[in-house]
Amino acid sequence: MPGRLQYKSALITGAGSGIGLESSLLFAQEGANVLLVDINLAAAERGVTLIRDRFPEVRALAFRADVGLEADVKAAVDLAVKEFGRLDIMFNNAGIMHPNDDNALNTEERIWDLTMTINVKGVWWGCKYAILAMRQNPVDEIKGLRSGGSIINTASFVAIMGAATPQLAYTASKGAVLAMTRELAMVHAREGIRVNSICPGPLKTPLLMDFLNTPEKRERRLVHLPMGRFGEAVEVAKGALFLGSDDSSYVTGTDFKVDGGLTSCYVTPVGEPALSPPASLI
């Protein structure tokens, strides 16, 4: 049975770990050729090895790029088009949450600028070059429309409701991603290019666990979570799969929340037992 991404090609940034790695594996499982892009080339190459071992029928390549450099982002997109013939899915997932990011009084300008460069400019450049590539995709002979593509931008629940643990630069950067996503979705909708953001809740990934580096910080996040647990990266990857596939063909300009109910919560019940992840995710 063909996968949901059969005959498609995808580029995923931040693909060496966390959401990016899980999405790379899941996209390949569903039939896509995948370019795994990460500033850590060895990590991306390990992902490629996993894909080739598990899904030898698809192509997977690794590429080192710093999304804070426009030339690197362009080179990554150019490589995907050269190797796969087209670009159908661009997942702008790479980002940072700097451990020295704090409130308005304590966050240094260099931390602010670094966060904005990677989390905002990196997404902008990813969208820019993906749009240029997707405009070259062939016309769908049945629909008479250019096949376009799907761009997915990783935002965060903190762009919607703010964070209990101060991280001002990160929160502001993810708010910019939401706004940018909405505008690009409107501008390019008639071209068949869909642009959506995915908003993860707190996840058990190295990025967040390195930031929540004390039991007190972790408990402060958990107390607000209706499900009483951190999410798993693969749970967000499944949301990205939906946005990248034709199952979401009428979805654009959304902020797709995968947050365990966090952004819908007013008061979390105290004393309720925490839920465990489904067995399939363990």
Rank of each mutant, 00 (worst) to 15 (best):
R4Q: 15
R4K: 15
L5Y: 11
Q6H: 12
Y7A: 03
S9Q: 05
A10D: 04
T13I: 13
T13N: 09
A15P: 02
A15H: 04
S17Y: 08
S17D: 10
G18F: 09
I19R: 03
E22I: 02
E22G: 01
L26V: 01
A28M: 07
L35G: 00
V37Q: 08
I39T: 03
N40L: 07
N40H: 07
A44V: 04
R46N: 14
R46I: 03
R46L: 12
R46S: 14
T49H: 07
L50A: 13
I51A: 06
I51C: 03
R54G: 00
R54E: 08
F55N: 01
P56R: 04
V58D: 01
A62F: 06
A62G: 00
R64E: 15
G68D: 07
L69C: 04
D72L: 09
D72N: 13
V73N: 01
K74L: 15
G95A: 13
I96L: 14
M97T: 02
H98W: 07
H98T: 00
N100C: 06
N103D: 15
A104D: 10
A104L: 15
T107L: 02
T107I: 09
I111C: 06
I111W: 08
L114P: 00
I118L: 11
V120Q: 09
K121Y: 08
V123R: 05
Y129V: 05
A130C: 12
I131K: 03
I131N: 01
L132R: 11
A133W: 12
M134H: 05
R135Y: 07
D140H: 05
D140T: 03
D140I: 06
E141R: 05
R146P: 09
S150N: 10
I151S: 04
N153H: 10
T154I: 10
A155D: 11
M161S: 09
A163V: 02
A163S: 15
A163C: 07
T165E: 15
L168C: 12
Y170A: 03
T171C: 11
A172Q: 14
A172C: 15
A172N: 14
V177L: 15
L178C: 12
A179S: 15
M180Q: 13
L184V: 00
A185S: 14
H188Q: 08
N196W: 10
S197I: 07
I198V: 15
P200E: 13
G201Y: 10
L203P: 00
K204H: 10
K204D: 14
P206N: 02
L208W: 09
P215H: 13
R218G: 01
R221H: 10
V223S: 14
H224R: 09
P226D: 05
M227C: 09
G228W: 14
G228P: 06
G231L: 10
E232W: 06
E235C: 04
A237P: 02
L241D: 03
L241I: 03
L243T: 02
G244K: 06
S249D: 09
S249T: 04
V251G: 05
T252L: 08
K257V: 14
K257D: 05
D259H: 03
L262I: 03
L262P: 02
T263E: 09
S264P: 00
S264R: 10
C265I: 01
C265K: 01
V267K: 09
P269L: 12
P273L: 12
P273E: 14
L275M: 13
S276P: 01
P278A: 15
A279C: 00
S280C: 06
I282G: 02
I282V: 08
